[in-house]
Design a protein around this nucleic acid. Structure first.
Lengths: 122, 122
DNA sequence: CCGTATCCCAGATGATACTG
DNA sequence: CAGTATCATCTGGGATACGG
């Protein structure tokens, strides 16, 4: 395929040194829950409860943790409304939406190929 | 952005149910080392020793484990030559190369934005 | 040179209960 | 509703030593 991997190599011969920003962000985004939460938010603004149900299997702890990480990365924006009962909404930031233009094609590929891969058949 | 996320939703309202093939493959590919190893292999066929040095910080255990997983997923092909001393080469399969066409743009985005994100500045 | 086997730990994750 | 706190767990991951 020979993509512009050379561009990446230009910065770092050793595929991003241990602990460099690229690896950190990669871990946030590519982590078990990061992708799924981002995916859920690409539908648009979502409330906590909706996210929790949308991302099947996630615990409250991991949802909170994942959201906080992504918010810290400037990929997700949190908006709390001073109401009773509380209402909090999460949405992608501009940067988050930009990321999704790259992330969604990948997820689609995985979704298309996952059955073949796991099933063992090709 | 409103991408074709609807396509994905068509299969699974709950963003891929817990333990479904998509999530499994996603974890393999997106794991801490999966991306980096695949990236190293997108340069072309590589020997074990080269990979170990290329993916800075990876332990022998994780390299072996990651390669085995990716091989099991049909993304990486392993070729052992009956020589002394042993020589073993790893390369992307066709499916692996196909995956990289989606994965590399994402990694490039991350590399481009990582400094902003981690540094906190925008 | 190319791994595999073993031990061990930290952090990731899960379950549950509780608060604003 | 939207979390936080706490405790228990479990697996990823590192270090090391050894085998083919």
């Amino acid at each position: 395929m020979s993509v512009s991997l050379a561009d990446l190599r230009g910065r770092d011969q050793a595929l991003f040194s241990d602990g460099c920003p690229t690896r950190v962000v990669l871990d946030h985004v590519m982590g078990k829950w990061g992708v799924l939460v981002l995916l859920a938010l690409s539908d648009g603004t979502q409330r906590w409860g909706v996210l929790r149900r949308s991302v099947a299997g996630i615990s409250e702890k991991m949802l909170a943790s994942t959201l906080k990480t992504l918010e810290g990365d400037g990929l997700v924006a949190r908006t709390a409304y001073p109401e009773v009962p509380p209402r909090v909404e999460y949405a992608l930031t501009d940067r988050g939406r930009d990321l999704m233009t790259r992330l969604i094609p990948l997820v689609e590929w995985v979704a298309d190929n996952a059955d073949d891969i796991v099933g063992g058949k090709a």
